[in-house]
Amino acid sequence: MKNDPKKILRYTPFERANHWLSAITFILLAISGLAFFHPAFYPLTQLFGGGVWTRILHPFIGAAMAISFGVMFFSYRKLNVITPTDKEWLKHVREVVDGDDRNMPEAEKFNGGQKLMFWLLVGCMALLILSGIVIWRAYFAFLFPAAVIRLASVVHAVAATIMIALIIFHIYAAIWTKESIDAMLYGWVRRPWAKQHHPAWFRQMMGGDK
């Protein structure tokens, strides 16, 4: 809620809705995918109405996420170009992890860590989409030779594992950095929060130097 007129808009309603669409489809994909990943997770198929339904649904949910994630990619790709300042930020990332960000280079709308995360997620997603199509038995797998399907199976499982790890990390960072979940839920952030975590962006939003 924007009860403070001095709050800054960080994400538009459309951006927020789309982010949560990606989040929900991702969780569903991770759960349904893990069900095939290892027998320990197979009972998760019950959440989707059994093994057959899980097999049917997973790739379609993947297609939905591909669209939603694609929109995010095109709207955020310019904001995520890694600058020398970001590289400097990443070199000092230990300090942030230790809970002291006083000497960090100034972050823009996204800091170096977020930008790196963005590109890693884009890479994983691209691999998941491509390999997912190749192993989609009902519609596409017959188009590919066995060696390609085998490779795609490995790529899909590896990219999914990495992406799930990245997202666990992403969710934790959001919980750890207080008020950032509010930004994605309601869109508006307090100015102190903006100055603390994204000083360069804050100055830009304030229309100049501060």
Partner: peptide, 26 residues
């Protein structure tokens, strides 16, 4: 091994929170 790795990421995150505390505005 991958499954264990994922569990470790989650456990690591939890440990970080417990030892370092939240990242609040100063």
């Amino acid at each position: 091994v991958a499954t264990l790795g994922l569990a470790m990421v989650a456990v690591g995150a939890f440990c970080h929170y417990v030892t370092k505390g939240p990242n609040e505005v100063s």
